[in-house]
Amino acid sequence: MMRDSQENIPFALRQFTPAQLREALRKMHLIRLFEEGAEESYMRGLIHGTMHLSIGQEASAVATCMELTDADKITSTHRGHGHCIAKGADVGRMFAEFFGKETGYCHGRGGSMHIADVKTGNLGANGIVGGGLPIAVGAALTAKRLGREEVTVCFFGDGANNEGAFHEALNMAAIWKLPVIFVCENNRYGMSTSAAYATAVKNIADRAPAYAMPGVTVDGNDFSAVAEALHEAIARARAGEGPSLVENLTYRWRGHSKSDRNRYRTKDEIEEWMGRDPIARFRAELIAHGVLDEAGAEAVEAEARAAVAAGIEFARQSPAPGVGDVTKFVHAEAAA
């Protein structure tokens, strides 16, 4: 009887400590609030350019990174704020980057689309769809060549699975048995083009057999399902058995970027997915299993809210880079 009830407990709750689970919830709230704060700042004209919000995809980012250490690497995408926070970045320095400040992670040179935090193993978001795929394979090659026990997680979207780089990267990772996990965040649309229209296979994980690697499709809004799939893939990578492909089915609540007019999807569809809010689900799960109570959950959210407010304030107060330094960081020596 005892065993049965154990088995009904979701994987994540069996695998991780209450402190880890609480931290995961905090990060999910932090991602949501960070992006809402960024959106608000953008609408007020405080942020330049554009940005790609991942609101609705928080479980995929956080659950994927649960078992990664700072030595493990990730490559991220243009929708990468969540990955960055999940991997351990500080939202103050992230806001500073969005505000174009010298204290930002990229000293104001990268912005939202190139947000990175090399110290926590985040090799960077990427403005090129599919750009990070071969780079992740290269990072895994380094680990293997230098005998490091690191793995690399390569985030990419459903759009990238039709780029040549995807196929070249998966093939090379497989022939060289490299410790890399390809994590597809299938949010159903590459800008406005649906994956159903643009992709010949039903599930992107169906591509995996072509490259002789395991491929699974999971509910990307179910924290535990994602964490479990990654647990297996990471173990396989660390054991030297090679790459895996994990497909997290999810949905972005917002448009592709800030210029999106949402002509290609219906309000009903968006609302239906908002009903599958990954944060609310995970929070309810933690409360149901007694990891947190309502007040504890509120406190977690309040903590995240305070961090976002402090982060925005830090960014606002931070100095801008000097325009004379426009060529700084092009080469190792300043202004080559």
Partner: peptide, 13 residues
């Protein structure tokens, strides 16, 4: 809120 005006270009490259 005061829009943070881009720094003037004087002194740029």
């Amino acid at each position: 809120p005061k829009t943070e005006a881009p720094a003037p270009l004087a002194g740029a490259a």
